[in-house]
Design a binder for these strands. Structure first.
Lengths: 335, 335
DNA sequence: ATCGTTGCCGCAATCGATTGCGGCAACGAT
DNA sequence: ATCGTTGCCGCAATCGATTGCGGCAACGAT
């Protein structure tokens, strides 16, 4: 038992495939009676249009591609959830690829999605992507691309980011106002603007509050939980006395540091304060609940998908936009 | 600038499309020199095969479809990560749909994936799916389907589950051995085997340890955090004295109860013990770290995807399998 | 009787890749 | 000179849906 085609319907009704096609698409040339016969039989035979044939003919798919570094991180899965919902309402299907922070895999993913002739592409680049040429061909072939969260220099394509600099600045300034002076930073040394901007917000907040930047208080390890542990270990090994407070580049990094601090039986925030970035659900549940910078994850997904569909629909005259969503400092008991 | 086709290459080299196609597929009929010319030009022109044309011709896609209730829940995103990795290695692309626990949306998703002519389907059914006819057509058309975690009666298709009954049984028996007697259950009243089996494990563990099942200690609300709060509220309103311990059907439900317990300033486990099911990362970080039943989420995804590819490759003679993965009780400080 | 109009439908080309079949050139063997 | 073989390649059909163009039947108008 194979798939029902338009031809099966045509033969059974003594019609041409043209007529069946038109009937299914409600073309005005087709009489009401024929249309009813066709749709009835199509339903009976469980007809589903072959999207290969449609795509081939129309040179367009109803698929959008998404490339994220890690599917299982809350931040990205929340974004994907937002994207998926917007796409569903627009009648599009979503192909999700994860690069696993691997540059080569990101390139392969992009090529696969190009072969799929996706109608558009949503990308958050992997951590060690210094080269973004694999996306150029989408631009050249006029396939809309929207970058989100982790973005390159957005010249020819739209971007959705949050205000990383402001978020970091406000968080660190808050720490200063609370009386903390030796404020450490665990960040990531990569090509990502989020890492750079959050570090810059940290540095500027210190500077503008007359606290010199102490380089021994800054380590660069990465963006995940294990990097948080590693970063804390480096600070612990390097310093005679631990810092007053730590501003971590992401919530997972903060959680990594949190685990180490707990292992050392230190009290938060009395011995050391801790601030993350993202507002993952987990950080509100740990003890003490952690102060963090809220990022509207689902909104990022929805906004990025919205921009993409806007671009798809308006075609060449679309002007790339750079949307910056606000962040918000969520003060909890870790500071 | 549109997509490069096999014809573009053929024209530029004065060859036929047949020859170009064969050259790209390393057909032995093609001379080494021609093959080199073709592959070189293909690279220069950034040729990517049109998967619509290939799919149409081969009546097969290199796409597998995945339907999950919720993308952003850790358990499912971890499974998806496993699936995505296995698929990537097998050269397949993954389309992910989320049903949002909505039956109608699950049906629509299935139809979309059928139109996409997916090579196979991985499904975890939504909570209120009492009717599974929308998957019958895949079976009839010989498209492999593997259900995971939330499965129907697996007769004609493969299934991957964990041992829900044993997991629940061991958890509740452990509570009994620890001396707890008034053990409540917050579960879900739905058509899912996971809910039924975990409740059955709970009930049997009590019975076999000579504790009568007290129906006032059992509430059925749902599978998510808000249902945990709701379930706890119902118990709180109904009972004069709260139970000794709560066995929750999932970790999110346990976390919901956890939040309420904390709000009431009760101590865990002195005033009330708490056990979840899944071993989400969050439950090891809260205070106290929560006892739970570990489910190997990534393994579920990998096993399900593995079974699917096995089925795809062996075709009609494949015998559906039902794989049950073991669970493990992780004892922490909440009991 | 001729013509124009309207309603309704079919022919055939098209999208891009694949592949069975056939065919030509070049060569050596007889 | 004829024949068979080998290497290499092209013709043309095919997958399923779409659509410009044309065409026929039926009808009323002149």
């Amino acid at each position: 038992m194979s798939h029902t085609t338009i031809k099966d319907i045509a033969v059974r009704l003594g019609l041409s495939t043209s007529t069946v096609s038109r009937a299914l698409r409600n073309h005005p040339d087709i009489s009401e009676e024929t249309r009813k016969n066709v749709t009835k039989l199509a339903e009976e035979l469980d007809y589903r249009p072959n999207l290969f044939a449609q795509g081939l003919k129309n040179q367009q798919s109803q698929i959008i591609g998404v490339i994220v570094p890690q599917v299982k991180h809350y931040f990205f899965s929340a974004i994907m959830s937002g994207i998926t919902d917007v796409a569903y309402k627009a009648g599009y299907t979503v192909i999700i690829c994860q690069s696993n922070e691997d540059f080569q895999r990101e390139v392969t993913n992009a090529q696969t999605l190009l072969s799929q002739r996706v109608a558009g592409l949503l990308v958050s680049v992997s951590q060690n992507s210094d080269n973004l040429e694999h996306f150029d061909i989408f631009i050249r072939r006029n396939i809309p691309v929207v970058f989100f969260d982790r973005v390159p220099d957005c010249v020819n394509s739209s971007c959705v980011t949050v205000d990383d600099y402001q978020g970091a600045y406000k968080a660190v300034e808050y720490l200063v106002k609370q009386g903390y002076r030796r404020i450490a930073h665990i960040g990531a040394q990569d090509n990502l603007s989020i890492s750079a901007n959050r570090f810059k917000g940290y540095a500027d907040a210190l500077k503008n509050n007359n606290i010199p930047l102490d380089e021994t208080l800054v380590v660069f390890t990465g963006l995940n939980e294990e990097h948080g542990m590693e970063g804390f270990d480096q600070l612990h090994a390097r310093l005679d006395t631990l810092p007053d407070a730590i501003f971590a580049v992401t919530d997972p990094v903060a959680v990594g540091a949190f685990i180490r601090i707990k292992e050392l039986k230190l009290r938060i925030p009395q011995d050391i304060a801790l601030v993350g970035f993202s507002d993952n659900p987990v950080v509100s549940l740990i003890d003490p609940p952690m102060t963090t910078v809220h990022q509207p994850a689902a909104d990022i997904g929805k906004t990025a998908a919205g921009l993409l569909f806007e671009h798809i629909q308006s075609g060449r005259q679309f002007q790339p936009k750079h949307v910056v969503l606000p962040t918000e400092l969520i003060v909890r008991q870790s500071t």
